[in-house]
Design a protein around this nucleic acid. Structure first.
Lengths: 332, 332
DNA sequence: GCACTTTACACAAACGTTTACAATGGCTTA
DNA sequence: TAAGCCATTGTAAACGTTTGTGTAAAGTGC
């Protein structure tokens, strides 16, 4: 059995109360002499605090939970770095839970393991909760905030990019280089995020006097495979001169499939990716992207959990990063 | 305040003992009638179990912790999927902790948050613990196992690939295609894993009657940058016709840098990557790799934690996956 | 030397569970 | 009808902490 404060108390010849106080460093409650006595006893016993027991009585915890979906895209790491950074700044610890890929049962498991024990807050990284799990979360009386995902009707707290702007600026980047026939690949329309991107994309085209064509939009789930499928649907003879990939992964899928169809990027086809993770600079040619500030989302998420007043929604900035996958076309 | 079993007991008109029993479904200890009474009371109160309190008395937990280092390489996800899978099969929950990048302080934080509360086991994914943190871990009296990392002297439990074989087979794959002057890029020699790979690589060359040259080995930390640096060191005029990348990331770094130096892969330079994550098929040309079975490592890790007898070390299989980055050279 | 404050510590309750043990009552059996 | 048994439930201790309250000793000011 591991040593407890009781053992320390006995060894040091003081009460458990005193032990607790010096260990918690509640100074002004003990003398230097007893302090060292207790410290020595503690180290000699190899004492490890039982935080669960402590949290049971104090009713508050120093851990924040990040629930991520094991998605096909890959920005979660950056968000987590931000969370980690800001959490440590405030002496909070972070645990991460995988919630599967839109599998309600896995989501429930993840939520349960964190709800059932004391955590001070829950951050949900682009996880789209099944209705019953949302109720679970809301009933748990624990502060929470969604990251990198947004919602339509319900007033849920979230922090993400302005997805309309994301769609708009990605498209505009292409328009600025003279492109007129521009696709959007791998986006989904089932959720707010996707819908907003489509809307931004459409508006950008309209603002340029272009009528968007239905077949220019290929739906998908943001994955590499979705990008490939989309590009296959466009075909090697496509009228499009440029494509917006709904995510980095989707953009790479588009690019690789385009190559298989005999199209060179950017000579025959320009691509702008959405997300801007390190993947963009790994592939060849490097992908121009509308980059989201995931790190910032993580930071803001932790701040949101810590703040008592809940300003429910927050937008993090985006920016266009030019790399090598877009070429200028001279209007004929 | 959240509802407790005491509240349920009062509402249902029974004792907390009974409530505990029906909630834990210790059948044969209560009648159907009281069961429903209790269930109803519980749901009507929106009861959430306080697992921390329960674990305090039972002294055992259902969560296993995976500590990962936020490394520049990216196989952790696959290991985690394996862990998750096997854990759920046995009704275990998984929490993930980031341990930073060889930062002892961050490691300590991560270890502390899991040691201080009841977890049934700790899996360390390719994290190379600072000496003081290792002591911490060992004193904690919690089962643990290292994954995807190996050690020399000390008898620590680990599960990983045979790194000597990894180095050997990667090199041999190149030798088999007629290459004679083969580099090894981005590997480190500070740890057992790296040393073994170097040894395997060297032996493969020797077995083919080739004397390895010191400058063929470029040390590094397995990162993309390490790959780039290595390739820059080799230079555009290198005598090498093939290179083993110490990781997927390193291999990609080598490849992209080679391109910048005017070398085409595989026409001018063949590459074999070590790891075989999905990155290998994302880049162009797709990278031939010696692939590790990370998923299997995760599974085995959980099994190791569950088993009482500790068979300390285990090796998971590797296999060569041919893609597009190696060409045959005809011996002159 | 007195009344008073401060310092340093101990006592004990509390947190939300589980579970060994005891208690109750009805039923069976002879 | 008494004895014994079983099914069901209750009582209370225990887990390892924190912290409010109590108190003895030491220090202060006059």
């Amino acid at each position: 059995m591991a040593a407890t404060i009781k053992d320390i108390a006995k060894l040091a010849g003081v009460s458990t109360a005193t032990v607790s106080r010096v260990l918690a460093n509640k100074s002004a409650f003990f003398s230097a002499a007893t302090a060292t006595k207790v410290q020595d006893a503690a180290t000699s016993l190899g004492y490890q605090k039982n935080t669960a027991a402590a949290e049971l009585v104090t009713h508050h915890s120093h851990v924040i939970a990040a629930v991520v979906n094991s998605t096909k895209t890959n920005f979660a790491n950056q968000i987590i770095e931000g969370i980690q950074e800001e959490a440590h700044r405030h002496d909070l610890n972070v645990i991460i839970l995988y919630a599967g890929d839109a599998d309600p049962e896995q989501q429930r498991r993840a939520l349960m393991t964190v709800i059932e024990r004391p955590v001070m807050g829950i951050l949900l990284l682009s996880v789209d909760l099944a209705a019953e799990n949302l109720t679970l979360l809301q009933n748990a009386q624990i502060p929470y905030c969604f990251l990198s995902i947004s919602f339509d009707g319900e007033q849920l707290p979230y922090i993400t990019s302005d997805d309309w702007q994301v769609g708009y600026q990605a498209t505009q980047a292409l328009l600025n280089q003279g492109h007129r026939k521009i696709g959007l690949a791998g986006v989904d329309r089932d959720f707010h995020t996707g819908r907003q991107r489509v809307l931004g994309y459409t508006q950008a085209l309209r603002d340029a006097g272009i009528t968007p064509q239905a077949e220019w939009i290929q739906l998908g789930n943001y994955s590499y495979a979705a990008g490939q499928t989309a590009m296959r649907a466009y075909g090697g003879q496509t009228e499009l001169t440029a494509i917006v990939g709904a995510s980095d992964m989707a953009a790479i899928g588009v690019m690789n499939q385009a190559r298989d169809l005999g199209l060179l990027v950017p000579a025959d086809l320009s691509i702008v990716a959405i997300d801007g993770t390190e993947l963009c600079s790994l592939v060849q040619p490097q992908l121009t992207s509308v980059s989201q500030n995931f790190y910032e989302m993580g930071i803001a998420g932790v701040q949101q959990l810590r703040s008592t007043e809940s300003l429910p929604q927050k937008i993090t900035p985006i920016k266009l990063v030019s790399r090598q996958s877009v070429r200028m076309v001279t209007p004929k």
